[in-house]
Design a protein around this nucleic acid. Sequence first.
DNA 1: GAATAGCACTCTCGCGCAGAGAGTGCTAAC
DNA 2: GTTAGCACTCTCTGCGCGAGAGTGCTATTC
Lengths: 345, 345
Amino acid sequence: MNELTERQKTLLLLIVRDYIESAQPVGSNRLLANYPIKLSSATIRNEMAALTEMGYLRQPHTSAGRVPSEEGYRYFVSQMMNQAVLPESVERTISHQFHQSRPDVDQWMTLAASILAHQSQGVSMVTAPHAQKAKYKHVELISTQGRQVLMVLVMAGGEVSQQILTLAEPVSQERLSQTAARLNALLAGLAMDAITALPARSDALDQDILTLIVQDIRRAEDRGSGEIYTDGLTNVLSEPEFAESDEVRRALKLFEERSTLQDLLARTTTNSNVGALQVLIGGEGEWEELRQCSIVLARYGVPGIATGTLGVLGPMRMSYARTIPTVRFVAGLLSDLVNDTIAGE
Amino acid sequence: MNELTERQKTLLLLIVRDYIESAQPVGSNRLLANYPIKLSSATIRNEMAALTEMGYLRQPHTSAGRVPSEEGYRYFVSQMMNQAVLPESVERTISHQFHQSRPDVDQWMTLAASILAHQSQGVSMVTAPHAQKAKYKHVELISTQGRQVLMVLVMAGGEVSQQILTLAEPVSQERLSQTAARLNALLAGLAMDAITALPARSDALDQDILTLIVQDIRRAEDRGSGEIYTDGLTNVLSEPEFAESDEVRRALKLFEERSTLQDLLARTTTNSNVGALQVLIGGEGEWEELRQCSIVLARYGVPGIATGTLGVLGPMRMSYARTIPTVRFVAGLLSDLVNDTIAGE
DNA sequence: GAATAGCACTCTCGCGCAGAGAGTGCTAAC
DNA sequence: GTTAGCACTCTCTGCGCGAGAGTGCTATTC
């Protein structure tokens, strides 16, 4: 299938570019008018026919211009990939925003989502960094009243989970603190398997809390990814291809049901490396709801310690030239931040 | 203006009800066909003309049926208000869901938002319970590594804020724990003004943390409300009145920019009592983006201690008969939960 | 033999128009 | 006060038609 001539390649890229900008089928004359091509419209038509034959273009109907097929977009993206860069001024601005924000995972995620959505004019999604194998770091028990206790569990890597427990009977803050101190001494740095292998504690309260900690860590590991942050949901509503609201509704529904979204992010990125971008075009046959959409995804973080996913969803004709380098750059920044947070350990 | 005859009242209610169900202008014959009215269409037309004159109805054009005006909806709602109840089976289901969930504010809010959205088929919003005057309860300092420290601050009422600090130099977990213990002894139960009135601490670390605590409490108070949870954003997309996406886009944008949403919730509910429902119809002239929408709001919690807001946004012709009792019921449930959480103090 | 000019053909889009349908408001009768 | 009857108004739908855009084919040029 890869018998594209130089000229066909050039034309294909131009056609995709023009369609992304104009959202309208591009015809031979239109192409000629907008770009300095040293060919006649008839020649272009011949080449277009060839490209259509090969599956890179489609025509909505006989007498309309051409529209890129998924294959066409894929070729376009493969070209973009190694080439597109963000203006340095934009990079500086983004870096600046990150270094000015409070050093807090929540802040970072929100900021990353906001920047991605804004730059790409699509819907952004960012998952908090998450460890495949969680390691115990620290626990605190805070009596809130009577029998209710706030448990704050910190894992190595900085992941925090908090939970309110209801004990069988009231326990003083002092005793809670002692329990926490004992467990901290006992569990520091241990992973799940090591913790479950420990002998039962003699003290009943200690044992109860230990059980809950195990539950919590297990839940954290099972989650598969950290919390998902999104932004820019309304951006996609303004796109002309989503005029009939039913299409867009199904896509946006994905974002409300976080579980499906988590699935999607997990399935498509588990086997990809940190730093490598992945572009899903038209749902790749797998996701019916995303037939009209593309997703640019990247994994960030430190493999084996804590990683997360970030990406942008937009119409298939989204501005890849803008989105791809932005996703790449923000992924790099977040990787650096995770790295810095890990460094001291 | 309140010279409505009994018959006019009945007709007005029927018209609003029918329009809410069908989303189509209702004419005299249609009304006659759908409801057992012992009047002729001509009489109905006369009454309709009168109701239109008085401002309760509008006609899109000369030869279409009538559509309720904002005033008409307002009358309808005022009738609903004291009358609408949720089927007991539904109440039981909802209660059940709450009592099965983990006793965690985050869980409760998410659940409340989900239930509201699902029952009302609108967009739900719930703010976490929040104290106007925050009182210190407890602090914990957890060394995550090197110079970074996780500070968990618990206020009376259960509000929790966590933050990562970067200290000037590394400090051992032991010293952090001592500092936390000292501050806990010193600050227990104090409000902002009492804390700021304290003399400076001799220990530099203590003083630094104290300053941060004050900042955190102040920020919590300034927030005006807890975190906002929403659900059902896509519900509103299926409504016929939002066919042209521009209208709906502006409304949904409100939900992305949390700050404006917070404003709206704050402004409209500060002077309302816990337990009383408020229904905003058509943005009440204040919110241009909501000209086509209605909002059902309620305040929950324990006044003076911790309160929050919850509500549903939908098209002006949303199902008030369903939404109003649901909002009322969930508000009651959340109030109970807040009450239980407070009780022990 | 590849590129081009010319031309007939196809398909969509927008517009105007007519007829159907729904609903009103008025008037006259009950 | 209520109702039957009727003329009138306005929207909505389908249809046909012409304009416009773009194609594909063929004959011609370099």
